[in-house]
Design a protein around this nucleic acid. Structure first.
Lengths: 349, 349
DNA sequence: AACGTTACCGATAACGTTTCCGAAAAGAGT
DNA sequence: ACTCTTTTCGGAAACGTTATCGGTAACGTT
């Protein structure tokens, strides 16, 4: 176990440890030949500097935390992929840590930062309350990626990268309205426990209003807390629940693609054809929606851009102490097979 | 930044740092009252011990690495979810690190272990060559999870947790044969660059042989290296390629669920109905396959069991130095809508 | 020849923690 | 009152690295 240290290298080269340290860290005041010899010996011996010792001396640990609420969420998994890639590219370590629904992400982050001297934090998903501003006091950069904070107008001292969920949700609903739909059901998060879901719901309501449609509570299915998540099973279950209400609807807006596909399955089993009898729209732009039958109309979030911006914002703060506020990306409305214009001759029940 | 150290606590309590250390680490030779007072002060001050300093003294870092080859693979993402959960449960840190297709995972692991004093490594996906046995020399436990090593009969000094890919693939192919299919196309990895894919292909061929069917190279579509992966797009592309060959087939075995769904989409676009005109089978048992239309027949890998076993094996080695070799789990053949018996009256082309 | 400059390098003190060793105090046995 | 344990604690040496500070030698410059 970790037998070879800087002392061994120093001894092997007949120099002091200081010189070895200088050689490794690319300092200037060292003879070219000496450096090359040292580096050669290091290479041969397979010596790797001990990170703990180095972190203890330096202020930096070259590590950031990725705190994710909802690791089983497909969209977040895709985002994690690009975020890890970007962190890796910068030769930083990525400490992955789930945060459970019940946990306080800020407390967790605080502890991580202190005990491991982390240099930055990325919050993925969920909501971010910061009652004590404790993270700010620690003065460690953090970014909310596809994650909301208490007050949208005061994006705390951390950065924020996401789409404008309210606006994009408005666009999607507006599109459904423009197809002639008036009875648009929605599958969405409970308004109290998830702010992203809340924003999407707000956009939906605003669009209905803009089209002079009064919203019907019976057409909204809320996630049951502790039971439902943004996944296939919940889309399926919630749609079954909707169907049991026996209310007519000609379009179904599911606030994630996974929900939407679960919904399609439930509709299929009920003998309701998509999009002939009912249009279905999702949100996120998951790869899988493109290959679904029917392919899914969705509002695609630019995962690559969001992920890259998240990391680059974080590193701008870490390395250059440069602060940039909220960064909002445009979504893209992908119109595919699962939505269609309302047929005029449709028989009313 | 990290202002409060053990010294501050010691001063605040009027004791020495040794005593504070003892209080934190639950040693016995300390007065009950003193300990309680120290713990109280620690709690109030928000002090968290510096991990780097601690690691430097102790041998252990309470951290393991999760090295994954193919982070965009849905099945691996699901596995990562449960693996991280299990690591988290044991209060260890999880260092997530992607390994690119071109990189040498062992070299990477070696460096990580040395520089961060990691206590264990999980390899997820890909293949594992260990020409120098360098990891063994370091004497740090590692587990191959759903990942193959050079020689299946000599599972190196690390543990191995997976399904028997050859056997399960045999079962799936056998099932298709039992439905009466004789012309069974396959979407699979190039035999040289991926050993899991190779095992699944071997199982396919053995089953054909058992049913007295000679295998046709024209019915096998190989992944193009650098282009194809286990994802939707490749399933789609490879099926298009298959269709262009104009060879008849009544069943299509895709060696992952994502490939299978991409295939279904391509077949749909070609006007081929699943399962009426062609049966389609996948592998993995992804959640999404259950909600696909038609729902996907697949060979489900027990993700939960695999993930939990991976971590528990690793910790058995870390904590108890207890070695257990290869662990193989049973897959489960899930027969759903995408496969059907071959119709006898089917017109030959 | 004396001095300043430069290039290179070594000794050493940190960084924050744990652990070993021994000391002081307190009780227990004679 | 004396030793002998036991309990509780502090001092100090590590762990492996980096950074500061100063020193030596070689080389010009006057």
């Amino acid at each position: 176990m970790q037998t070879v240290t800087i002392k061994d290298i120093a001894r092997a080269c007949g120099v002091s440890v200081s010189t070895v340290s200088r050689a490794m860290n690319g300092h200037q005041d060292i003879n070219r030949e000496t450096r090359e010899q040292i580096l050669r010996v290091i290479e041969e011996s397979g010596y790797v500097p001990n990170n703990s010792a180095r972190n203890l001396k330096r202020l930096e640990s070259r590590a950031v935390a990725l705190l994710v609420k909802g690791m089983d969420n497909t969209f977040f998994q895709d985002l994690m992929d690009v975020i890890e890639k970007e962190i890796h590219r910068r030769k930083y370590a990525c400490i992955l840590q789930r945060v459970e629904e019940s946990e306080d992400e800020v407390a967790l982050a605080l502890e991580l930062v202190k005990e491991k001297r982390l240099q930055g934090i990325i919050f993925l998903g969920g909501k971010f309350d910061h009652p004590e501003e404790s993270l700010e006091r620690l003065n460690v950069p953090f970014i909310l990626s596809t994650s909301e904070c208490r007050n949208a107008f005061d994006p705390c001292s951390g950065g924020k990268v996401s789409v404008d969920n309210e606006k994009e949700s408005f666009r999607m609903t507006e599109y459904l309205c423009s197809l002639g739909h008036r009875k648009i059901a929605i599958l969405t998060a409970a308004p109290n426990d998830d702010s992203i879901g809340r924003l999407r719901f707000d956009g939906y309501r605003r669009a209905l209003q803009a089209y002079g449609i009064s919203w019907e509570p019976d057409l909204a299915v809320w996630m049951k807390s502790g039971l439902d998540k943004y996944n296939f099973a919940s889309g399926y279950r919630m749609t079954k629940e909707l169907l049991e209400r026996n209310r007519e609807f000609t379009a179904l807006y599911a606030t994630s693609d996974t929900l939407a596909m679960g919904a399609c399955r439930a509709l299929f089993e009920a003998g309701i054809r998509v999009p002939k009898d009912c249009s279905v729209a999702g949100f996120d732009g998951l790869e899988t929606g493109k290959y679904y039958v029917p392919s899914l109309t969705t509002l695609a979030q630019p995962v690559g851009e969001i992920g890259r911006a998240t990391v680059s914002q974080l590193f701008r703060r870490i390395e250059k102490r440069e602060i940039s506020g909220q960064l909002t990306f445009e979504g893209k409305l992908l119109i595919r097979e699962s939505t269609a214009p309302l047929k005029a001759e449709r028989s009313e029940v």
